[in-house]
């Protein structure tokens, strides 16, 4: 009994440190991690207006602008033409610009996109799943994602002007490794 006292004490203290450390450590990570510049863009797999599915991986290798928007959100509606213009301007240099609609009916999205002349690819989120994955708090939110899949900048709120978008895209191209 006496012989084993020391090891038993060590064992109990080790347990206390382990369990206590786990408990305290966990308290640091209770807040959900928020997406920041530098984080990896969360994966998604979504259908476009014609029903074809696309995932994030298929956009890798080239800079990507991801715009979350909805027809119920006035600034989203207002920045559509600017986005389209910037898309036309940069797409030949390899820019990909994708709008992700905020879980609305396909028919409303189609109608609206047609009415404002948005011809860049539009994907349809469902049940707010992708939107939650990207931790959206305000609409619109636009993610500028470099060709290696990391978020470089996040533009929250809108509408953004053509110049705004342009400068974001320029920075995206400056830092993105050319593929």
């Amino acid at each position: 009994m006496k012989k084993h006292r020391k090891p038993i004490q060590y064992l109990i203290l080790a347990f206390a440190v382990l369990i206590g450390g786990y408990a305290i450590g966990r308290s640091f990570f209770t807040t959900q991690s928020v997406l920041k510049a530098g984080s990896e863009a969360p994966a998604f797999e979504l259908a476009d207006l014609s029903g074809q599915t696309h995932d994030l991986d298929s956009y890798k290798g080239k800079p990507l602008v991801l715009n979350f928007w909805g027809t119920f959100c006035p600034p989203c509606r207002d920045e559509m033409p600017a986005l389209q213009k910037e898309y036309d301007k940069w797409k030949d240099q390899g820019l990909q610009l994708v709008g992700i609609n905020l879980s609305e009916d396909r028919i409303s999205v189609q109608q609206f996109a047609a009415s404002v002349g948005a011809r860049f690819p539009i994907l349809l989120d469902r049940n707010k799943i992708t939107e939650k994955r990207y931790g959206l708090k305000e609409y619109p939110t636009t993610f500028f994602i470099s060709s290696d899949g990391h978020i470089q900048e996040i533009a929250i709120g809108g509408p953004m002007s053509e110049e705004d978008i342009d400068s974001h895209i320029k920075r995206l191209f400056e830092t993105s490794p050319k593929s």
């Binding site: 203290l13 206390a16 369990i19 206590g20 408990a23 305290i24 966990r26 308290s27 640091f28 209770t30």
Partner: peptide, 15 residues
């Protein structure tokens, strides 16, 4: 009640 110090106190009480 989720803070590190409060959880730490509880862990110390347990020990």
């Amino acid at each position: 009640y989720e803070s590190w110090w409060f959880v730490g106190l509880l862990a110390m009480i347990g020990t």
